[in-house]
């Protein structure tokens, strides 16, 4: 075996500007992540299983018992809500994945390499989206099967998907940050999911909020998941369940984009800092 001198790599590094290596490192890490997701069919299966189960349960069990104020089809009302819930679960997948890599020492190993440190997690955040796209696709098919239809322009439908995926991306960053912060995989499993259920139920994702106590109605109105669900309904041309007067209810699509952008801005910075500062 030949032991090359370390100057070999230094010379290599100079051959490309830092952003060239940033892209190189992102691709390398993302590729690894995507292969991993595809090699563990169980993870993907359960990522799909839960939302599809929700589509079926809510359509057939609660569907008949939940009348909409505007008299629309509950299944058409439901689907944009379940999309919102599903993309929110992105946080759990990212949290657990990052915590696992940390506990196995893979994150530390990456840190000892001459990589662009931010690229290690930026690459990961992109790769996580592959799973999200798959999940949303399967959900849409499940929705079509139970009778969900869109009633708007192709542009609006595409816009709705962009809105959902952007939010999924935002919560992926949140998940990466939480995953880097928790001490163990066990904690990650709880921390990643614990707050998602109450948050999705304290929204208009499954039922119109008119029946909630006033305080919760206010909370639900500003809840990003409500914005996302209502935004989806608006863009797909599905029943909206007579939204309230609050600003986010009147401009749900705008608010969904605002929420996503804000979350990305805050948590990408926090996550990159956390990854770098672990030397503490």
């Amino acid at each position: 075996m030949s032991i090359a001198t370390p100057t070999m790599q230094s010379a290599n590094n100079a051959a490309r500007p830092w952003y060239g290596w940033f892209v190189n490192d992102c691709i390398a890490v993302a590729k690894r992540q995507i292969i991993t997701v595809l090699r563990i069919p169980q993870t993907l299966f359960f990522a799909l299983f839960q939302p599809v189960l929700f589509v079926l349960l809510f359509s057939f069990v609660f569907g008949g018992a939940i009348p909409l104020p505007d008299g629309g089809s509950y299944r058409e009302y439901l689907l944009p809500g379940i999309f919102a819930q599903t993309v929110t679960f992105a946080v759990a997948a990212a949290t657990v994945g990052v915590a696992e890599d940390t506990s196995k020492g893979i994150m530390d190993r990456f840190r000892t390499l001459p990589v662009n440190q931010a690229a290690v997690i930026v690459g990961r955040s992109f790769a996580e989206m592959v799973e999200r796209v798959l999940v949303i696709t399967v959900m849409s098919v499940a929705g079509l099967v139970v009778g969900w239809r869109t009633h708007s322009s192709l542009f609006n439908v595409l816009m709705a998907y962009v809105m959902y995926l952007l939010f999924a991306y935002a919560l992926t960053w949140m998940g990466i940050f939480v995953g880097l912060s928790v001490p163990s995989v066990q904690v990650a499993q709880t921390a990643g999911v614990a707050w998602v259920f109450p948050l999705t139920f304290l929204s208009n994702a499954f039922v119109p909020t008119q029946g909630m106590p006033v305080l919760l109605q206010h909370f639900a109105a500003w809840n990003p998941i409500s914005c996302l669900a209502l935004g989806g309904r608006t863009l797909f041309g599905n029943p909206t369940g007579t939204p309230g007067d609050a600003f986010p209810q009147q401009h749900p699509v705008l608010m969904a984009f605002v929420w996503s952008t804000a979350i990305i801005a805050v948590f990408s910075v926090l996550a990159v800092r956390k990854f770098r500062n672990k030397r503490g």
């Binding site: 790599q9 490192d25 990456f110 390499l113 001459p114």
Partner: peptide, 9 residues
């Protein structure tokens, strides 16, 4: 993967 992260051709 490691080779790519070490920035080797």
């Amino acid at each position: 993967l490691f080779g790519a992260l070490y920035h080797l051709p």
